[in-house]
Design a protein around this nucleic acid. Structure first.
Lengths: 206, 206
DNA sequence: TGTACATCAGTGAACGCGCGTTCACTGATGTAC
DNA sequence: TGTACATCAGTGAACGCGCGTTCACTGATGTAC
């Protein structure tokens, strides 16, 4: 068996295409990226693309698959805090999401853009949000149990929290920074979100 | 002078194209809309479009111009409350923005989509946000003056507030409702946002 | 008021550009004997 | 181990579809005299 068999070569090219796609998506956005932009970035011929993916959408689906796989690995992280009447639990979740988003910024941005144009990806994005929300739902019981009042019913409260984190991450981690702004450090961002959300959800100062 | 002169006819057609565009944008989104979708919806020939607009972008710019014009009219509304240490002032601003967004949902959605693909519109959207933020900046002085602590520095605090309102409005007023959700009434939405934001900004319960 | 000509909004078939996709070809890797 | 053939990843020029854009034409409105 030679140092570089056919399987290996194919796997290598496929990986190069995915890596190139992530770079190009980050640079010009999913919607503005042409197939040939990806193959050029990967240093392959245009036709090579179709040996590996049926379309740009299929490639994005593959990237999302990778993301889900890597998510499953880190999901078992210990230290999971679940009592949202404690600011530390809120911060822990904010940190987790922030780190996740930072890792997968290019893919998340691509997904958002694809969702604007394609119903399938819109559903993917919605169910991603729903699964995040489901993880949190239980944690809010402790808030009401501790005698605090949520700002709205549970679903809307979680939705507001999720939208805030997600859009904030989107803005600072997956978009060109607006002119005249200095991006917050990770700590500043996490702290700002934690305060706003803890206060918003519980009505307590922090 | 005849009942329908050339000027009038041209104005009518231009108006019909803009109205048709808003309807089609609302239905399928800006990016998925073809020039011929707009002319068909308006009941005109494809070529007619170019008597009035140089491109789809130019049409969107025209819609944004109309929006700015109608915004200026209603900007002088009385009852402007500016002391954000008072929840009523927060609610007043949330209501204003909610009503604005409801009125212009199709155009705002189109702008968002265009901004994903086109740097000029990205800047337009950013400066729209910045002008909203600038209107608010002064109101937060009263919060700190009243001895309350903002969740972050002024800019980030305003940004979080703005993102929350804007995305929430975007979701419920300018997008197809996600399956399995019942959209909140206007009052519910305004109330939920007001609580979350007032608490988030001031650290006081409400 | 009437006639002849000019202008212009609107039309829709045709054109052509951009880009996704194909496919005949190359050369390297794998297999059979 | 060697030879002949099969398979397959990669190539890039060419094809063709979709859609934005043009333009010669029509008929109605405006103007000149």
């Amino acid at each position: 068996m030679p140092a570089t068999g056919r399987r290996e070569q194919a796997a290598e090219t496929q990986h190069a295409l995915k890596a190139a796609a992530r770079r190009v998506f980050a640079r010009k956005g999913y919607l503005n990226t042409k197939i040939t932009d990806i193959t050029a970035e990967a240093g392959r011929a245009a036709g090579s693309f179709y040996n590996h993916f049926a379309s740009k959408e299929a490639l994005l689906s593959a990237l999302l698959g990778d993301l889900a796989a890597s998510g499953d690995e880190s999901a078992v992280t210990e230290g999971h805090l679940s009592d949202f009447s404690d600011p530390a639990a809120v911060r822990w979740h904010v940190e987790q999401y922030w780190a996740f988003y930072k890792e997968h910024a290019a893919t998340m941005r691509a997904l958002r853009q694809a969702a604007m144009v394609n119903d399938d990806f819109a559903r993917t994005l919605a169910s991603f949000g729903a699964s995040q929300a489901a993880d949190i739902a239980g944690h809010l019981d402790r808030v009401t149990a501790a005698g605090m009042r949520l700002p709205a019913d549970t679903d809307l409260s979680i939705l507001m929290m999720y939208q805030l984190i997600d859009n904030f991450a989107q803005m600072w981690l997956a978009s060109p920074a607006p002119v005249g702004w200095t991006p917050p450090t990770d700590d500043e961002a996490v702290e700002a979100l934690t305060r706003f959300i803890y206060r918003g959800l519980t009505g307590r100062d922090y």
